[in-house]
Structures are given as structure tokens and as C-alpha cells.
Amino acid sequence: MIVSHRHRFIFAAVPKTGTHSVRQALRAHLDEGDAEQVGLFVNRRFPWEDLAAIRHGHLSLRQVRPYLGDEAFGGYFKFAFVRNPFDRFVSYCAFMLRDGEVFQQQPREAMYHFLFRAPPEQHILFQPQSSLLVDDDGATLLTDRIGRVEDMQASYDAICAHIGIAPSPLARVNGSRRSDYRRYYDQALIDGVAARYARDLDLFGYTFEGAQ
């Protein structure tokens, strides 16, 4: 997550949505009064002890709101990027098994393991994207704009125009080796991901085939 007092924005870093590329681009526009929390590639912490203790940078908007106050939180432009949950789940499995050839050799077996046999419920990368972006009611988005990974550069350029900074080409960071996500699925996996990430599909307008 990044909080820029200079440009009055909050970037909520949803995992597995190209957040490191966006962070890299945004850092060129931050100054000493701005704050970032991240734990991969770069190690930075928020100035608030309770949040800094969490250590990773995938914090929810609900978590940071009390530290900013209602006026700043309400007035700052809040944005995030999201991704088709079916694509994101494949990316998650590939990322978790990136140090070997298991996913390359048996991708569907790996997907069954994470989805059905031993789902890592508390792992922030496994949790629904919406869990970082909704209010306490679990349904109302706190963001002012949602960008899409499927149209990432155009989404980022539009966000830059809104917050008044110059856009720049986004680099590819932390990508995984895999094919089109649709090739990895059978019907049981489609149904399982649809059930687990139902709120993401509904809030962000995705189906198995893509964005509605």
C-alpha cells in the first residue's frame, strides 16, 4: 500500500495484480512525507506501529482508515487493480510452486491441492481481492476507481491523469511461467473458484471467459 499526502491518493496493493509494477512507477512521484508498506523486493514500513508489525504491504483500506482520519481518507483518491479470479488463482498456484517444476508438470493437481485439499485460508495472497477493498459490510467498495490487469497500462494512465502525475510504461515484475489460464481448468475447478471468489466475480464483473 502507498499513501501519498503530496498527491492525495491511496493505492491499495491487491496481491497478484501487478502491484509491484505499479509501485515502481508511483515511487518516482513520492516524497519524504509519503508512506509505503511493502515486504517483497523492497522493505518499507508505515509509520504506524500496529500496521508496520503486519510486515507485508497488502493491507486493506479498512485497516488504514483509522490512521488517516475520516477527512483524509474520504478526500484522498483511493484506487486498486483487480484481476479475473480464474486467472489470478492460476497465477497464485504457479507463484507458490515457483521454486520447482511441480506446477509446470502437474498444474491441475496443484490447483486441486490449493483449492480443495489444503486451502491456505489465512494466506493474504489466497484471500479474495474484495476483502482488501470493501467496507465493514463486506459489499460496499471503498475505492474511487478500479483498474484492471487485463487493461493495465490504460488503467494506470487514466489513474495518473486523475491524480495529476505523468504516466510511464509499467514494467513486468514477478511474473510466472504459464499458459492462458483457461487451459488449466476442468469443470470442478471452475465451479470451485466460482464459489470461493463469488464476491470478486460479482463486484468486479468477471466470468470464466473474462470481464463482462
Rank of each mutant, 00 (worst) to 15 (best):
I2A: 01
V3I: 15
S4C: 10
S4W: 02
H5F: 11
R6H: 03
R8P: 05
I10V: 13
F11V: 00
A12D: 07
A12Q: 01
A13P: 10
K16V: 04
T19K: 01
T19N: 06
H20C: 08
S21H: 03
R23I: 15
A25H: 02
A28Y: 11
H29V: 09
L30M: 04
Q37N: 04
Q37G: 02
L40A: 11
L40S: 11
N43G: 02
N43I: 10
R44M: 00
W48I: 00
E49G: 02
D50M: 05
A53W: 09
R55V: 06
G57K: 01
H58M: 08
L59K: 02
L59C: 07
R62H: 09
R62C: 08
Q63H: 03
P66R: 06
Y67S: 10
L68D: 07
G69Y: 01
Y76K: 06
Y76D: 06
F79G: 06
A80H: 02
A80D: 01
R83D: 08
P85R: 13
F86Q: 04
D87Q: 05
D87N: 11
D87V: 09
R88M: 07
V90M: 04
V90E: 07
S91D: 09
C93A: 11
A94M: 05
M96Q: 14
M96Y: 06
D99Q: 11
G100H: 09
E101C: 06
Q104K: 12
Q104T: 14
Q106N: 14
Q106C: 14
Q106R: 15
P107V: 05
P107L: 11
R108C: 03
M111R: 11
L115W: 01
L115A: 05
F116N: 04
R117I: 12
A118H: 15
P120L: 07
P120A: 06
P120Y: 13
H123I: 02
L125T: 14
F126G: 02
Q127D: 03
Q129E: 10
S130Q: 11
S131H: 10
L132Q: 07
L133R: 01
D136L: 10
G138Y: 09
A139V: 11
L141W: 08
T143H: 05
T143A: 10
D144H: 13
R145F: 08
R145K: 13
V149M: 14
V149L: 15
M152K: 13
Q153W: 09
Q153K: 07
D157M: 09
D157Q: 14
D157H: 11
A158G: 13
A158N: 12
I159F: 03
I159E: 02
C160E: 06
H162Q: 15
I163V: 15
I165F: 01
L170S: 08
A171K: 12
R172H: 13
V173W: 03
N174A: 12
G175D: 12
Y181T: 00
R182D: 00
R183L: 12
R183T: 10
R183D: 10
L189A: 04
D191P: 06
G192C: 08
V193M: 01
A194I: 01
A194T: 09
A194F: 05
A194W: 05
A194G: 14
R199K: 14
D200T: 04
L201P: 03
L203T: 03
F204W: 00
G205Y: 03
F208A: 00
A211I: 08
Q212F: 10
Q212P: 12
